[in-house]
């Protein structure tokens, strides 16, 4: 019995870890084994046809790419600027503490509430309608706290001596940030930004009421038009379609493409991080 106890104890922890790995394996195995047969060049390059029961998902891919780009355009400059303010300029005042508390709380706000905010502010308030730009702005706001938090972390890792080197030869504070601090922090910032965008690319709830559509016949999206997106397409095919069983292969194919897009973005981030850690 005495010999067995450590084995049981150790086994408990191993079981927990094994379960976590098991979840990932099931997810990947199921999506790949059942999604792969649906994947073809035609699937990713053609329009849906015959009431979505045939054809491809090109407009959804384009929509997701455009949406993610707008998200980046909104959240990256805004987020980096705010992170620079907090890490490089802000003193420890009540206002700074309020900004930091706001960021942490924004990161915890459920994504569906961002959807409501986008609906109230962009779609209705600013009269942008349900459109690519409304949805992009909404997702941009959702991504903002993550961009700020990861950028600030990257800036914090830059030693004070790097800033002082630039200041000591007569650079202004902005010049030292622009020419020395930001370039040094770039790999860290990039990693955070790409991870954030991969999250945004898979988000569905915030775009439900702000611009996503089940079907559009024009694959080239415009800012003021509704658009299709991969996660929403998957949601519709798996729950709302009138012939759910018939379109299941399409749903699997969409899920696989979505997860490939997200993982590719993640891999990019890990590659940047890995390469940077090797350089140091």
């Amino acid at each position: 019995m005495k010999k067995l106890t450590p084995l049981i104890e150790w086994g408990t922890l191993l079981f927990c870890t094994g379960m976590v790995c098991f979840f990932l394996v099931v997810i990947l195995w199921d999506l790949i084994s059942k999604g792969a047969p649906s994947l073809s060049w035609e699937f990713v390059t053609s329009l849906p046809s015959e009431g979505m029961t045939k054809g491809g998902i090109l407009p959804a891919i384009i929509g997701t790419v455009l949406l993610t780009m707008i998200t980046a355009l909104v959240s990256v400059p805004f987020g980096i600027s705010c992170a620079i303010y907090l890490n490089e300029y802000a003193k420890d005042t009540w206002l700074t503490r309020l900004i930091r508390a706001s960021i942490r709380n924004l990161a915890g706000v459920p994504s569906i509430i961002y959807g409501l905010f986008g609906l109230a502010l962009f779609v209705q308030g600013l009269q942008m309608g349900t459109s690519l730009i409304s949805a992009g702005l909404t997702l941009g706001l959702l991504s903002l706290p993550y961009v700020i938090i990861t950028t600030e972390e990257a800036l914090r890792r830059i030693p004070a001596s790097t800033r002082e080197a630039a200041l000591a030869i007569g650079a202004t504070q902005f010049e030292s940030i622009r020419d020395v601090v930001l370039p040094s922090a770039l790999p860290g910032i990039l990693t955070g930004v790409v991870l954030t965008l991969s999250r945004a690319a898979g988000e569905t709830a915030p775009i439900l009421f702000t611009g996503v559509a089940f079907y559009i016949n024009n694959p080239t999206g415009f800012l003021n038009q509704e658009f299709m997106s991969l996660p929403y397409h998957l949601y519709m095919l798996s729950t709302q379609h009138q012939a759910i069983e018939e379109v299941r292969p399409l749903a699997y194919g969409t899920a696989l493409v979505l997860i490939i897009v997200v993982f590719l973005l993640n891999l990019t981030a890990f590659y940047v991080r890995y390469k940077h850690s090797k350089d140091e």
């Binding site: 001596s161 790097t162 080197a165 630039a166 030869i169 007569g170 020419d179």
Partner: peptide, 30 residues
């Protein structure tokens, strides 16, 4: 002030740029 009073630090802190650019940078901004 810093233009007229230069400083060398405890730990060498060259910019993550080329040798040439390390000196050129100060000249450029000034």
């Amino acid at each position: 002030v810093r233009r007229r009073i230069g400083m060398v630090f405890q730990k060498a802190n060259p910019f993550p740029k080329s040798i040439y650019e390390n000196i050129n940078y100060g000249l450029k901004i000034n």
